[in-house]
Design a protein around this nucleic acid. Sequence first.
DNA 1: GTCTATACTCAGATAGAC
DNA 2: GTCTATCTGAGTATAGAC
Lengths: 195, 195
Amino acid sequence: MTAPVKKRSQDLESLIFETALKLFTEKGYFNTSVHDIQKEANVSIGSIYHYFKNKEAIARAIYNDLIVHMERAMVEIRNTHQTTQDRGRAVINYLFDLAEKAPDKMHYLLYATHKEFMPEEKSICSSAPFAIIREMIGEGVEKGEIRNMDPLVASACLIGGALRIIRLDLDEFLEKPISHYLEEIWECSWASIKK
Amino acid sequence: MTAPVKKRSQDLESLIFETALKLFTEKGYFNTSVHDIQKEANVSIGSIYHYFKNKEAIARAIYNDLIVHMERAMVEIRNTHQTTQDRGRAVINYLFDLAEKAPDKMHYLLYATHKEFMPEEKSICSSAPFAIIREMIGEGVEKGEIRNMDPLVASACLIGGALRIIRLDLDEFLEKPISHYLEEIWECSWASIKK
DNA sequence: GTCTATACTCAGATAGAC
DNA sequence: GTCTATCTGAGTATAGAC
């Protein structure tokens, strides 16, 4: 729970963290044993259990780290952009950037069926970063920048297309790098909700 | 592999199939043991292994059944509707209907990380029903009914918002029944790609 | 075809030396 | 803090009676 949002350097905890993220993404949480992490990271089982209570705690640390980073990014977007159009564009940019620079994390965000291995965790839809997106959209409706509609629907439409393309990218279904699709996706996303 | 697309009545095979679908959806594939299926369905473990080679084969049967049904529906849509607008609307209708009438199947479609338990299966994005959607969109571009754009992007935008709302529904995040959001979603989806 | 009993493997977790 | 060795339970799958 004291997640390593801090530094991510040479220490064992970070090594375990990164290795687990890699393996969870490649093979899935349930197909990755603690022994797999141990072998891949060249550490002992004892070390893993020294830093993390159990396997689920590793998954939780990764999840929390991701959510915290996303939340910060969303707050930053809200602070540095004024119009809903600029903010929406920045959100799509962020998602594409994450998909390109840290596909592991994006995979974990999109694919991980978190409830299956973190039973008591709330649905990711209700997490802070997604709530902030809905808030920004809600403001946009009030200010008349986007059509008068349920912010829930509007945010689903704003990010739905992008997340779908990102999924195709993670599935290696796209011929070109993900950034190639950014402009077209953004045009569609914005067209779907603009006034 | 001779999946029970046929009847789904009293026979044990169908009972096992339906029970597995229910449990895989509720708890996830990896959290569901064959013993769980056995207990829930009130059949013996021997019967399960009589009808299915192993646990993965059950998952595969469910997957194939779903894909076959979806493919039929998409073919039907292509045959009975002419314009891309009508077809697109019918696709969204179908997805919402499935989410409402058979949430288990929709959950399996959206959430199941199939590669994790069916390693050699191709990504669902390349499956027949989704290919048909892309074909219909491609026709729409040619006929000038939707903007000139990559059909891949256009289909992502067409269904992206809907799938996102459906996900919120499955996560029990929506206040109203899913059908309440159909019109708004459709307006957004079509607005995102129409000429 | 349906059942029970059981074999076998392996993952998660712990104990305790250094 | 890091390690090795080991325990324990669960889960998949099989054997073989009926």
